[in-house]
Lab assay of single mutants.
Amino acid sequence: SLNIVTVTLNMERHHFLGISIVGQSNDRGDGGIYIGSIMKGGAVAADGRIEPGDMLLQVNDVNFENMSNDDAVRVLREIVSQTGPISLTVAKC
């Protein structure tokens, strides 16, 4: 069973999320979106629970499971540009 973790980040303390995301597209185009790298000083690094290779399932109320990489990057950028905490739900691989 997948270990699902939801992390809520206070964006007032850390001014950027600090992750890159990578799409693992397979033949069907539904390989999922994964955490690529984590930048020091960002909210994700400070929290420490999300790691490279984790699968990104949801951000706030947006489901990322069947999203293309381009869409995921765009949607994540829109969410980060808003104010307030950000909740990331990942599956630990």
Score class of each variant (00 low, 15 high):
Ser1Gly: 03
Ser1Gln: 05
Ser1Val: 06
Leu2Asn: 15
Leu2Ser: 12
Asn3Val: 03
Ile4Val: 03
Ile4Phe: 10
Val5Gly: 02
Val5Tyr: 05
Val5Pro: 01
Thr6Phe: 07
Thr8His: 07
Leu9Pro: 08
Met11Thr: 06
Met11Ser: 08
Met11Leu: 09
Met11Ala: 06
Glu12Met: 11
Glu12Tyr: 11
Glu12Ile: 05
Glu12Ala: 10
Glu12Thr: 09
Arg13Ala: 09
Arg13Gly: 13
Arg13Ile: 11
Arg13His: 10
Leu17Cys: 03
Gly18Lys: 01
Val22Leu: 08
Val22Pro: 07
Val22Asp: 15
Gly23Leu: 01
Gly23Asp: 14
Gly23Cys: 04
Asp30His: 08
Gly31Glu: 14
Ile33Asn: 11
Ile35Asn: 12
Gly36Ser: 15
Gly36Val: 04
Ser37Tyr: 11
Ser37Pro: 03
Asp47His: 15
Gly53Cys: 03
Asp54Phe: 02
Asp54Trp: 02
Asp54Ile: 02
Asp54Val: 00
Met55Thr: 11
Met55Glu: 12
Met55His: 12
Leu56Glu: 00
Leu56Lys: 01
Leu56Asn: 00
Leu56Phe: 02
Leu56Tyr: 00
Leu57Val: 10
Leu57Arg: 08
Leu57Trp: 05
Leu57Lys: 12
Gln58Ser: 13
Val59Thr: 02
Val59Gly: 03
Val59Glu: 00
Val59Tyr: 02
Val59Leu: 10
Asn60Thr: 01
Asp61Arg: 07
Asp61Asn: 09
Asp61Val: 02
Asp61Ile: 00
Val62Ser: 09
Asn63Leu: 09
Asn63Asp: 10
Phe64Asp: 01
Phe64Pro: 02
Met67Gly: 03
Ser68Cys: 08
Ser68Gln: 09
Asn69Val: 07
Asp70Thr: 09
Asp71Met: 06
Asp71Phe: 05
Asp71His: 07
Val73Met: 10
Val75Leu: 10
Val75Ile: 05
Leu76Lys: 00
Leu76Asp: 01
Leu76Cys: 07
Arg77Met: 04
Glu78His: 04
Glu78Thr: 11
Glu78Ala: 04
Glu78Gly: 13
Glu78Gln: 05
Glu78Trp: 02
Ile79Glu: 01
Ile79Gln: 04
Ile79Pro: 07
Val80Arg: 14
Val80Ser: 14
Val80Asp: 11
Val80Gln: 14
Ser81His: 14
Gln82Leu: 05
Gln82Ala: 13
Gln82Ser: 09
Gln82Lys: 10
Thr83Ala: 10
Gly84Met: 09
Pro85Glu: 08
Pro85Phe: 07
Pro85Leu: 14
Ile86Gly: 01
Ile86Trp: 08
Ser87Tyr: 06
Ser87His: 06
Ser87Trp: 03
Leu88Ser: 00
Leu88Trp: 01
Leu88Pro: 00
Thr89Leu: 10
Thr89Gln: 14
Val90Asn: 01
Val90Gln: 00
Val90Arg: 02
Val90Ser: 01
Ala91Leu: 07
Ala91Val: 13
Cys93Gln: 14
